[in-house]
Amino acid sequence: MPPILRKLLLWPLRLIGHLAGWLLALVIVFEEWGWEPLQKILARIGRWPGLRWIEGAVRGLPPWAAVLVFALPSLMLLPIKLLALWTIGQGHVLLGMLIIVVAKLAGTAVLARLFTLTQPALLQLRWFAWVYTRWMRAKAALLERVRASWPWRAGRVLKRRWRQRWQAWRAR
Rank of each mutant, 00 (worst) to 15 (best):
T87L: 00
L95Q: 08
R126G: 02
L114M: 09
L122C: 10
W127E: 14
A66R: 03
L105N: 02
W86Y: 15
A106F: 14
R113Y: 08
Q124W: 05
P79A: 07
K81Y: 13
M97F: 11
A106T: 14
L75G: 15
V93D: 03
A103H: 01
A65W: 12
V102E: 03
L142H: 04
A129P: 04
L142R: 05
G96Q: 02
F128D: 06
A66T: 07
W135M: 11
I88P: 02
L68Q: 03
P120I: 02
P79E: 02
L98E: 12
A66S: 08
W127Y: 10
L122M: 05
V110A: 06
W86S: 10
G89M: 02
T116M: 09
K104E: 14
A121G: 00
G89K: 07
G89W: 01
P73G: 08
V131G: 02
Q90M: 08
L78C: 04
L114D: 12
L94C: 04
M136C: 09
L72R: 05
L122T: 07
L117R: 00
H92G: 03
Q119R: 13
G89N: 11
A138V: 14
Q124Y: 06
G96W: 00
H92Y: 11
L78A: 13
P120D: 02
A138L: 13
V101W: 00
K139N: 14
Q90H: 09
Q124I: 04
M136S: 12
